[in-house]
Structure formats: structure tokens, C-alpha cells
Simulated assay, not measured.
Amino acid sequence: MARDGHALSGPAGGPPWGHVFSIDRLARNLQDLLRLLGQLTDKGVTVQFIESQVPADVLLALRELGIHVLPVHDSVIVGRSNKGKAREVMLSCLLRGTGVPGILGVVRE
């Protein structure tokens, strides 16, 4: 493609994708897009940090209660006698960490 002023042109001097394309306009649009993505990325990192803190808080709280726990992804494995307390602790940590009440279920008895 040849550059003609600030516009790209396709074969035989026609526009490359059926329209005239300004390099300056593309650069401005990309800068705007990158600023927006930067803002979203910052928010994403913040959410990921909060999400990582909730399970850590759960593990620490259960340890303080003397409950043996095995973390598995977004859940924990505890003895049957501790499932109610573990559920209570998980809901409490989720609410404290996010400000949002959670919904939890027991996968296996």
C-alpha cells in the first residue's frame, strides 16, 4: 500500500478497505483505546487482588479456630464436623472483603 498524504491507499490507488483511512485519526483512536484499556486493566488487577485476599482470609480464620483445611481453587475441604463453621467463615470473609453477601453450598457430605 502506498501512502498518499495522511491516507493509505490500496491497489490501483483505491482505498485499502473500501474507505479512506487517516493515519492520524487511527493514532488518536488507538491512544484513546489504550487509555481505556489501561483504566480497565487497573480495575481488573484490583478485583483480582480482592479475590485473592478472600480465600487467604478464610484459611487464616479457619487456622485460628484450629480447623484443618485444604484449599482447592475457590473452595476448601474440611472435616464433616467443621463444614458448618467453614461455611460461616467463608461467608463472613466474603462479605467483609467485598461488601457483597455470598451464596455457598456444600458439594459433598
Rank of each mutant, 00 (worst) to 15 (best):
D24S: 15
R108S: 12
G44I: 06
S22R: 15
N82K: 09
G38D: 09
R87H: 09
V69A: 03
S75W: 04
L40N: 11
G66F: 03
V76K: 00
L104R: 02
L95A: 08
L62V: 01
A61V: 00
K43S: 10
L30H: 14
N82Q: 13
E109V: 02
L62C: 01
D74Y: 06
V89N: 01
R87A: 10
N29F: 09
G13E: 05
L40D: 12
H73L: 10
A2Y: 01
S9I: 13
S81F: 05
L91R: 03
G66R: 05
D32S: 14
D57F: 05
R108D: 06
G102D: 05
L65S: 09
G13A: 02
A2E: 13
V89T: 05
G18M: 09
P15G: 08
E64R: 10
L59T: 00
R35W: 08
L65R: 14
G13M: 08
L70D: 04
P55L: 07
E109A: 08
D4N: 07
L40R: 14
V54M: 04
D74G: 05
P11G: 04
V76N: 03
F21E: 11
L95D: 02
N82L: 00
M1C: 04
L70E: 11
A7Y: 11
A56V: 05
L104A: 13
R28L: 11
W17K: 06
P16R: 07
V45W: 12
R63Q: 06
S81I: 11
L40Q: 13
T98L: 08
L37H: 15
L62S: 01
P101E: 07
Q48D: 15
E51M: 12
S52W: 01
M90T: 01
E64T: 02
D32H: 14
R3F: 05
L59Y: 01
V76W: 01
R108N: 09
V100S: 08
Q48I: 08
G99L: 07
S9D: 02
R96N: 03
G99P: 11
A61N: 10
L91D: 02
T46L: 14
S52E: 13
Q48G: 15
G66E: 02
G18S: 03
D4V: 15
V100Q: 10
K83F: 09
P71K: 01
P16K: 02
P16C: 04
V72N: 03
N82I: 00
V78P: 00
L34D: 14
A7S: 05
D42A: 14
S81H: 12
L95S: 03
G105P: 05
V78D: 00
G18H: 09
V107G: 02
L26T: 11
R35I: 07
V45G: 08
Q53S: 05
G84C: 07
K43T: 07
R35E: 13
G66D: 01
I103A: 10
S9H: 07
P71R: 08
G18K: 07
V78A: 02
M1L: 05
L62K: 00
G14D: 06
V69K: 00
A27S: 15
Q31N: 13
V69E: 00
S81L: 09
E51S: 14
E88M: 05
P55Y: 04
P11K: 12
H19W: 09
N82A: 14
R108F: 06
P55W: 03
A2D: 13
L40F: 12
Q48C: 10
V47A: 12
A12M: 06
D57E: 07
S9V: 13
D32E: 15
I23Q: 15
